[in-house]
Amino acid sequence: MSKARVKVPKKAKKGEIITIKTLVKHKMQRATKDKKTGEPIPRNIIHTFEAAFNGKTFLKGNWDTGVSANPYCAFTLRVQESGEYTFTWKDDKGETYTANAKIEVA
């Protein structure tokens, strides 16, 4: 939770299309060499992003090195019921970052 920020509406009407904004702290390191030592620096980027609602993935991102550092991503969801979102980011080092949020649908 510490590395990600998400913004979702807390309440919505059934069938409403809501906008979700997400940010995650990540260097999105391209494979390169250290400027001073010449040591290779391996690629370490978030390659997969998933947004799920009540356990069902509704958006998936497959990212490459062309995505800027500290990735921002906004998208929409049509909500039909109350529930919980889960957002997951996975990087090349095998780290997974997650964030959750709840919404009440009237």
Binding site: S2, K3, R5, V6, K7, K21, L23, V24, K25, N70, Y72, A74
Partner: peptide, 14 residues
């Protein structure tokens, strides 16, 4: 303008 688009906010949280 938008705290959820402003990547600097990640540092505020830290």
């Amino acid at each position: 303008d938008d705290d959820f688009m402003n990547q600097g906010m990640l540092w505020v949280e830290r």
